[in-house]
Amino acid sequence: MNRRTRGWLVGFATVVAIQALRMPVRNERAPGGFAAPTTVQSAVRAACFQCHSEHARWPWYAQIAPVSWFIHAQVGEARKRLNFTAWKDYLYDPGTAARKFGAIDQMVRSGAMPPWYFRALSARGRLTPAQRAAIESWAIEGRADALKAESH
């Protein structure tokens, strides 16, 4: 067996072995909570829910290490920062709602969200300019309302 074949075999064995370190594929909570105008709702559900909610549709490669490690870390962090399944919780505290609306506007406006790798992997991650504009105006309005409620 030459060095190159041995290298391939070791690589293959490593990939097989790390499959034992599986990440649990799960969505924690029941659907519900997020309400917005229809245009915004459909755009957010398509482009954001995959990471920022408990409604993730896990692709087949989310089961294969080491890709699964990256995906699970990304989804975990995304849900921590903004989870549309907990939307009603955010709205309960106007100050928190204002922060979340502000962050959504900023992230969508700057093009940071959805992230490039999601846009590359899934057509659902590619927002049209009209969808972006709808999300931005909804977030600006939501933030203004939340700030008004906070000051009362």
Binding site: N83, Y90, G95
Partner: peptide
């Protein structure tokens, strides 16, 4: 509070 979904500056 990530647990309670609160974020305030």
């Amino acid at each position: 509070s990530f647990d309670l979904h609160r974020e305030r500056v």
